[in-house]
Amino acid sequence: MGLTDLAAQIREGLNGKSFDGSLKFDCGDDGVIVLADGSASTDDRDTDCTIRLSQDNLVKLLGGKLNPMTGVMMGKLKVSGDMGVAMGLGKLLAR
């Protein structure tokens, strides 16, 4: 599954939910997914918060198989910028 497919899934998941700020999932050479303005895209831009992780770990994070706090502690994801935005993401991912 590519980042374009993941971005489409995130867009569906965001439908009807509000998200303050902007956030980027930076998967290095695989590309980025940017959450901003109530949608998700693969167009890179500056964001309030950046989460660096592998595409594999992004799939796990979005699928609920990787706890964000555990991921940070284990070094599987690195957060920079506005931590409040990252915390807001946790509420969006909750099922």
Score class of each variant (00 low, 15 high):
L35V: 02
L35P: 05
A36P: 02
A36N: 08
A36F: 08
A36G: 04
A36R: 05
D37F: 04
D37N: 10
D37L: 06
D37I: 00
D37H: 06
D37V: 03
G38C: 04
G38I: 03
G38E: 01
G38W: 00
S39A: 10
S39L: 04
S39V: 02
A40C: 07
A40E: 01
A40I: 00
S41G: 11
S41H: 09
S41L: 10
S41Q: 11
T42V: 12
T42C: 14
T42I: 11
T42P: 11
T42W: 13
D43I: 14
D43Y: 13
D43P: 11
D44T: 08
R45F: 12
R45A: 15
R45H: 11
D46K: 15
D46Q: 12
D46F: 09
T47A: 01
D48T: 02
D48G: 01
D48W: 04
D48L: 06
D48S: 06
C49H: 10
C49S: 10
C49P: 09
T50H: 07
T50A: 09
T50R: 03
T50W: 05
I51W: 02
I51H: 05
I51S: 00
I51E: 00
R52D: 11
L53R: 05
L53K: 02
L53H: 02
L53Q: 09
S54I: 06
S54H: 08
S54N: 02
S54V: 09
Q55T: 14
Q55V: 14
Q55M: 14
Q55L: 15
Q55K: 15
Q55N: 13
D56S: 15
D56F: 14
D56Y: 13
D56R: 13
D56Q: 13
D56C: 12
D56M: 14
D56E: 13
D56G: 13
N57K: 13
N57Y: 04
N57F: 07
N57A: 02
N57C: 06
N57T: 06
L58W: 06
L58R: 09
V59D: 15
V59S: 15
V59P: 10
V59N: 14
V59T: 13
V59I: 14
V59R: 15
K60H: 11
K60D: 13
K60C: 09
K60A: 12
K60G: 00
K60Q: 12
L61K: 12
L61N: 09
L61G: 09
L61F: 08
L61Y: 06
L61A: 02
L62R: 02
L62M: 03
G63W: 01
G63V: 13
G63M: 06
G63Y: 05
G63S: 07
G64I: 05
G64S: 08
G64Y: 06
G64D: 04
G64C: 04
K65R: 14
K65C: 09
K65Y: 10
K65Q: 14
K65T: 03
L66S: 09
L66W: 04
L66I: 07
L66R: 03
L66Q: 05
